[in-house]
Design a protein around this nucleic acid. Structure first.
Length: 467
RNA sequence: CGGGCCGUAGCGCAGUUUGGUAGCGCGCCUGCUUUGGGAGCAGGAGGUCGCGGGUUCAAAUCCCGCCGGCCCGACCA
């Protein structure tokens, strides 16, 4: 009997069971809220720290802005308030009485950050201004799902202001490539297709929106990162201007970009299999577990020695010496949690001077000498990371079909993604696809590169069902 | 907002038709034996049956009202 519902049988149920049995997260008392459990959070922390390094390398400084935003701020940018108002949570009572002005719990922080950028920016010397904050945000969702669509979730939101449109556009592209695409690909081992959003899918108040889309094992798309060029929309709404070198007052060009706990959902649905979660070594909270088969002195000594060697090499390693639980139970438990590598230490191997290495992704076992064990584990971790990405790329490419008609694209998008000339779709085609639950995830150039503008010629649309 | 389904132990459920001592599986606790892929045996703890009212000698069960949740649709992204 298997531990989980097989993916083929009921993918959503498999997902729920992984969340619960791998002790990742569960629902909070308020619909749409989530509790991230210690094991789940250990993975999030790794993802977070990797992305934070990349953001800093891209030049943005960390800041923190308040969660409560005066409602009036939202009214200043017409399209922004228009699209966000249905999903706002608003505080109207506090301190025992009705507030004079309602306070919006931030769904995103363009407005409040814009207000303060206005005060900080006077001259071209203050630009570019590049900020990033890690925060929680609240968007009232009708169909919440843990990690994928929460009423409250955690994310990073970057906000920048630039002197010229070209500089803003360049920075948006830099973030998309060096922070978003690179972290998803190299650290989460999730291959992504990046492109520009159609007008219909564009962020509220944006001039251009870009995204990185990942393909889940069920063939559906998940938007894993976005970056936006606002043009001067927010600069005008919040009066963010500067004195340029030519002595003229000009509005700045702003951008914003974000990655969220939704990536946890992507990680689960890209790498997980019928035996549970599979965590890429780079972002694993625990990369290696040394599992002691029995409660013997010799076993403990060797296990501790290997563990210490791994710790010296900065590997996140834990010892499993829960002897009150059977070996089989412990193995299954570590497997559901997706621990990348287990090192089994037992008397049978020790008699020959060996231990056993087990890879979670392939479930292959091989024997190592005690002396070389730590080094072998190090190289195996690298190999696992490489293989996870390669296999994810292969699974994705298998399900992408180049199409030459809308009918063909509709058919292909039932089980995977369809690529089709955007000219054959158009806004009319986009609306009709929506009736079948299909969306244009993004537009790319023919060679797969990211267009600078959604009006460019010869763009290719990627069509899919999406979370 | 419309249609359908469901609220019984931590979780999953049976019991409701036909009213009569609150059950099962998993999990949890104690002890012993086990431990190279979900261990076995023995003992044990745990429930205002969603809430309120009504009928009845007697209500998880029948009747009325309310609350909460899930699915489909609508709406939204």
């Amino acid at each position: 009997m298997s531990v989980l519902t097989p993916q083929d049988k009921d993918f959503p149920r498999w997902y729920q069971e992984v969340l619960s049995k791998a002790e990742l997260a569960e629902n909070g008392p308020v619909r749409g809220t989530m509790v991230i459990r210690p094991y789940g959070f250990s993975i999030w922390e790794q993802i977070q720290s990797r992305i934070d390094k990349r953001i800093k390398a891209a030049g943005a400084k960390s800041v923190y802005f308040p969660m409560l935003i005066p409602e009036s701020y939202f009214r200043r940018e017409a399209e922004h308030v228009d699209k966000f108002s249905p999903e706002l949570a608003v505080v109207t009572y506090a301190g025992g009485k009705k507030l004079e002005e309602p306070l919006v719990i931030r769904p995103t922080s363009e407005t409040i950050i814009g207000e303060h950028m206005r005060r900080w920016i006077q001259s071209y010397r203050d630009l570019p201004l590049m900020l990033n904050q890690w925060a929680n945000v609240v968007r009232w969702e009708l169909r919440p799902r843990v990690f994928l669509r929460n009423t409250e979730f955690l994310w990073q939101e970057g906000h920048t202001a630039h002197a010229t449109q070209a500089d803003a556009a360049d920075y948006t592209a830099t973030i998309l490539e060096t922070v978003q695409r690179d972290s998803l690909t190299n650290e989460l081992a999730i291959p992504v297709i990046c492109g520009i959003k159609t007008a219909k899918e564009r962020f509220a108040g944006a001039m251009n929106s870009f995204s990185c889309e990942g393909m889940m094992r069920d063939g559906k798309a998940l938007q894993l990162a976005t970056s936006h060029e606002f043009g001067q929309n927010f600069a005008k709404a919040f009066d963010i201007n500067f004195l340029d070198t030519d002595g003229k007052q000009k509005y700045v060009w702003t951008t914003s970009w974000g990655m969220s706990t939704r990536m946890m959902g992507g990680l689960i649905m890209v790498h997980g299999d019928d035996n549970g979660l599979v965590v890429p070594p780079v972002v694993a909270g625990t990369q290696v577990v040394v599992i002691l088969v029995s409660d013997d002195t010799g076993v403990k000594d060797v296990a501790n020695r290997i563990k210490d060697q791994l710790v010296e090499n900065d590997i996140r390693v834990e010892l499993d010496d829960r002897f009150d639980i059977s070996f089989g139970r412990r193995s299954v438990d570590l497997e559901i949690k997706g621990i990348p590598i287990r090192v089994e230490v037992g008397l049978r191997d020790l008699a020959e001077g060996l231990v056993t290495l087990v890879r979670r992704d392939t479930r292959e076992k091989r024997q190592l000498t005690i002396e070389a064990a730590a080094l072998d584990v190090l190289s195996e971790l690298t190999q696992v990371q490489t293989d996870l990405l390669r296999n994810a790329v292969a699974r994705r490419d298998e399900l992408i079909v180049d199409c030459t008609s809308l009918r063909e694209a509709r058919e292909a998008a039932r089980s995977g993604w369809a690529r089709i000339a955007w000219a054959l779709v158009g806004t009319g085609g986009e609306d009709s696809l929506a009736e079948d639950g299909l969306t244009v995830r993004c537009l790319q150039n023919m060679d797969g590169s990211v267009p600078a503008d959604s009006q460019d010629k010869d763009l290719v649309a990627v069509i899919a069902r999406a979370y």
